[in-house]
Design a protein around this nucleic acid. Structure first.
Lengths: 109, 109
DNA sequence: TACTTTGTTCGTAATTTCACGAACCACGAA
DNA sequence: TTCGTGGTTCGTGAAATTACGAACAAAGTA
């Protein structure tokens, strides 16, 4: 949709950011970045939303490529998608840790 | 809205992430992180959207606290909101650079 | 086979987002 | 005062998001 002025990295970073743009999804991601995996039922017990809504949030994280589910008996085990998580880390690290210049605008007129 | 299970930091990070969740806004933020400031008109010339839409995106970034505008003659100069930008950096750095554990779930049953 | 557990999908409703054009406002210049 | 210039706000649609409950599906257990 946007022209070539917008880089692929910016589009990718925006997609990851959008997936992170909800407290519930942030919670899940942070949990998975510390705990390696979890089950939807465990989340459902703790979070203030019904399971169908949680399922939707998990689907969004999955569609964005940030997590992945693995069938395990009656349950489904969720973990980070390591590959894409790494990509997101790199994109955001590069983006955020750009040293902010103090020089004023080029266009000074 | 969410219970106490979700931390304030997660809510804040989600708010920043949401603001970053569009390629246009990503573009603006990345520009400002390299260039210290810019004018809406310059962006409008380059980006494939009309100026009213751009204005909306800039407002979202402003509302999220990531940028600020300063009136300057006929134009408005936009820069990063240094304070909040720093906060976002810290939140995301902490969040993203959590070393991913390889140990399996606690709940192994 | 019937029951239970675990999650997804469906249908619905309220809200928000995204994009556009038209109208408007502030302010310096003629 | 009138005219540009530069942006914002308003009004409007189309589409996406968020949330819920009900219904459904898969797979192990009685």
């Amino acid at each position: 949709m946007p022209k070539e002025i917008i880089s692929n990295d910016q589009i990718k970073a925006a997609r990851y950011a959008k997936a992170m743009g909800h407290p519930i999804r942030m919670y899940v991601l942070e949990l998975l970045s510390r705990q390696s995996c979890c089950y939807s039922g465990d989340l459902s017990e703790v979070l203030p939303i019904v399971k169908s809504t949680l399922s939707q949030h998990l689907k969004e994280l999955k569609d964005a490529g940030l997590i992945q589910g693995e069938i395990e008996a009656p349950r489904i085990k969720y973990c980070l998608n390591k590959e894409n998580w790494k990509e997101a880390q790199e994109l955001f690290n590069r983006f955020l840790n750009n040293p902010v210049k103090i020089v004023d605008c080029q266009i000074d007129k």
